[in-house]
Design a protein around this nucleic acid. Sequence first.
DNA 1: TCGCCAAGACTTTTT
DNA 2: GTCTTGGCGA
Length: 743
Amino acid sequence: MTDPLLDSLNPRQHQAVTAGDGQILVLAGPGSGKTRVLTRRLAYLIERKNIPAYDIIAVTFTNKAAREMENRVVNMVQRSLEGIWLGTFHAMCARLLRREANYLPYKSNFVIFDADDQEALVKRAIRDLKIDEKTHRPAGVHAAISAAKNDLLLPADMPIRTYRDEVVARVYTRYQELLQTNNAVDFDDLLLLAARLLQEHPGVAEKYARRFQHVLVDEFQDTNLAQYELLKQLSSYHRNIFVVGDEDQSIYRWRGADYRNMQRFEKDFPQCEKILLEQNYRSTQNVLDAARQVIDRNRNRTPKHLFTEKGAGSKLIQFTAVDEVAEASFVVDTIQQYLASRRAVASDFAVMYRTNAQSRIIEEAFIHARIPYRLIGAQRFYGRREVKDMIAFLRLVENPADEVSLLRVIAVPPRGIGEKTISGLQAAAFRAGISAGEVLLDLGRKGPDSAYWAEIGRSAALLADFGSLLDQWQSLRDQISLISLFDRIIADVGYEPYINDMSEEGNDRWENVQELRRLAYDFQEKGLTEFLQNLALVSDQDTIPANGIEEPQDRSQGAVTLLTLHAAKGLEFNQVFIIGLDEGLLPHSRSRDDPEEMAEERRLFYVGMTRAKNQLYLLRAERRSSFGSWDYSEPSRFLQDISDDLMLVQGKRSVSRRDSRLDDMRWVTTGVSSTPRTVYKTTAALPESKYKPGMRVRSASFGEGLILESKIDSDGEETVDVHFESVGFKRLLASLANLEILS
DNA sequence: TCGCCAAGACTTTTT
DNA sequence: GTCTTGGCGA
């Protein structure tokens, strides 16, 4: 008899799924069936061990992973999953905190501030304390506060060794005060507050620890101290904790993740059972061997010997392009060749890069070649102004104390409320000891009878108008549906004509608002609070369709996926291009001086490599344009770790110089012809430029300098980039500059 | 108060 | 080259 739960598992997977009670540590290499083990384990506990779903907590890092697990388990078990705690760390913590809000200085309907809100609030804290914003950048201070929170440190616990530490501690203190008055928490607080709540209230900790007979954790290598502590607390009674992870895929150090939690786990639970999953079901042996050559240089890890039954497969291909445009066109040309020969469809491909900024050139190339692509991440939807505006209106209805949202929309669209009026409102709120939102509501309800009317003076009527709108929305909130509320807000403030000026961009903006409205549809039942929490906790990862399920669409061929290496974790593609294998980019220059950071760059590359099922392309460019001039770079050190027998090195494309007339031609790849040819550029037909890089020149106005670059545009006009000793970089028209050639 | 323009900063990864 | 910020005029 075959058992659908245990069917087709390899011996190691089987061992993990059916492991007994206690602490289980599964070291799962890439492509080794990690998700499968986790979902089967969950199903096994419920179905075979008769553990009520209610007594289980399973945590992941992304909503997508949680959803995927849920969907799979639902299909495997007869029983209902009702009552299970299955979700992301952040969502599970939010649930815990809302339930136990009476132990906290927050109301249970607190809002969750996203990255932008957090930075705005840090900025405000810095200004409140009259600290210089230039020397203490809000982003940097926020990063320091976030790091402290991930290490479970409150402002009072901050070690102070330098003046900077002292500044950070003060801002942190003020920042927390502001969050509290806004009835808001940030991402890190969700973890920190939950962990500390359990630490400080043994009664509460025991309640949850007794309930959760089994704790399951995905991506354990990415946990930070707060998460680790939380898991320990939750599993402290039954002591059944099942974690799955891979040190080699830990890529969130900068977010406080510590892969050594894997080792800490072994120390904290010496009797734990450790299971190694090494059989890979994704990649060819060549890809695995190359990946291993890269990752084996890291220390402090459990060596793994990934193997596959797929066979060697084809060699990796390395290509050196002359610049980032040539790099992009190699990607596009190669994909077109596959598509033309019908050996692949667009969705088989992924292009991965270290920094989001690299996506633009690639995007342009895809647009020109008319290959459909989808871009993951880069805040493209939730970061949009119009989307944030609408969310801010909704958050204000939910929680008028949310001053960040209030300030965001109080003058949107412009309604005569400016800086002065706002500071008057804030001053009145401060004196009354209540939030600005409450003052606004009072003005709206009572008009001239409000105690604040006279205090604020001239502009009180304008504030009262907006306050009255807010008041109406609040009372409508429980009477009408979420969608109706949404529409009502748009109508009341005249948002549509404000953002949609009928231009193409205006239409896009309005489309985004409509998209948000569609998202609200799914929360008609669950309500505003849930909708807002969901908006705060969705990640870009969550927009990637689940494995195997293609978007219901149009282009039956799907689209090429463009994404950062970070976003690639957990995914797989037939053909993978990793671009930008240059020193300074991958590994990134910011990791240069820190061995731990460098090791993480290596892991990041490893994660990217192991996404490839069949073919892996590694690309680099000898130079890249960075605002104005060219950056030249060496090949990434990681390339040198891959042995010659695994990799084919291809010649570079011959473009000797960037020329604006070629920019138009560059993309003229022949999409219709059956053999799309690479367009090779030559310099033969070009008019000679008078000035050449490296020449020394003298200018009447700037003195002596060195030619960095020279190009001729379509009118035959020559533009030169010169570095002058006196004034540095200048871009000049050769015909006007009258440069004298010295050498 | 608001919109326009110029100068300046800016590129690491994101729940 | 692009996005944000701040200053200035209407």
